[in-house]
């Protein structure tokens, strides 16, 4: 049973095509990531999966069922953490979890035990009796994640799970998500943090303007599209044209923005020493990352 298969999946709002005919399949026990600029269509894709918006076209199966025909059966096995927090402000922290359990028809006794466990899991045990409005935004996010786990989902959908979290909390969430993965929970994540995608995702899809541009393992994508290393040169006391001439002898791809040039290579050491010899000062050699892939594919500059 594949958690999700989508063929030519499309979503049109009134005059926007939010998702424009995408194909993908999420494998069992996989953590699948969507990355892409604002407005790329990530959230819309997730919403179609968790039965919040109906698709306009194409095929979609979630846990082997069609969300447009059996939404309540699909939703029973999903854990959903939407992009915007929507905790129940009329209820306290603990009751938020038990009430949510009730929507899944989980008996009250079991729900209470589960709620305690989950609060411990996201380190909110001391906040059990607190009002939602008295939580910090990071705590709310953690509670959202706990809430998404109340029904022991087969597929967990996380739309920017760690937005607004401090580094400790992010690492806590990463640890928790890895733990869930080891318990064979399949996951779909969107994130704007490339380190997070690299850290957690088995495969990522890079989306832009409603389309999936590439799909693959983060490492493979980096190797394919960038190489091993990157040299960044600040264009303070030099120009892109001069740099192009100076780097001409090396096997590199060069990309320029208004502030910086990026040179991609397998082994950048020779290039680095060459440029240093030529008197370049504001220069940095580092390993290539998913962020480079992202920026290369979707453009280094803000488009809209």
């Amino acid at each position: 049973m594949l958690p999700v298969t989508a063929k030519n999946l499309t979503k049109k709002y009134k005059d926007t095509v939010a998702v424009n005919g995408i194909d993908f399949a999420v494998q069992e026990k996989e953590c699948f990531g969507f990355i892409g600029p604002n407005g790329a269509g990530k959230t819309t894709t997730m919403k179609m999966i968790y039965c919040f918006v109906p698709r306009t076209g194409g095929e979609l199966l979630v846990l082997d069922k069609d969300p447009s025909i059996h939404p309540e059966m699909v939703k029973a096995d999903l854990g959903v953490v939407p992009q915007d927090n929507n905790l129940d402000e009329d209820l306290n922290v603990f009751t938020n979890l038990t009430m949510y359990a009730n929507y899944f028809n989980i008996p009250h006794g079991i729900a209470r035990v589960k709620a305690k466990e989950l609060l411990a899991f996201v380190q909110l045990t001391e906040k059990e009796k607190v009002k939602i409005t008295e939580l910090s935004s990071g705590m709310k996010r953690r509670l959202m994640i706990a809430r998404g786990l109340i029904n022991d989902p087969k597929l967990l959908i996380l739309d920017e799970p760690t937005v607004g979290l401090d580094p400790q909390a992010r690492h806590l969430i990463w640890d928790r998500l890895r733990e869930l993965k080891s318990q064979n929970v399949s996951m779909i994540i969107t994130t704007h943090y490339m380190d997070e995608a690299t850290e957690l995702c088995d495969r990522v899809a890079v989306m832009d303007k409603g389309k999936i541009m590439v799909v693959g393992k983060p490492k493979d994508l980096i190797r394919e599209h960038i190489g091993e290393e990157v040299v960044e040169v600040m264009l303070l006391d030099t120009t892109a044209d001069k740099l192009k001439k100076d780097a001409a002898g090396f096997l590199v791809t060069l990309e320029e923005t208004s502030q910086k040039c990026y040179l991609y290579c397998q082994d950048c050491r020779p290039l680095l020493s060459h440029l240093t010899d030529k008197g370049y000062k504001h220069i940095l050699r580092r390993p290539a990352t998913l962020e480079d892939v992202f920026l290369k594919l979707t453009g280094r500059d803000l488009v809209d």
Partner: peptide
């Protein structure tokens, strides 16, 4: 404002 409906309708409650 509270998005309570949004939260509920991603559970089996339609």
């Amino acid at each position: 404002h509270l998005r309570t409906y949004d939260a509920i309708i991603v559970t089996p409650v339609n």
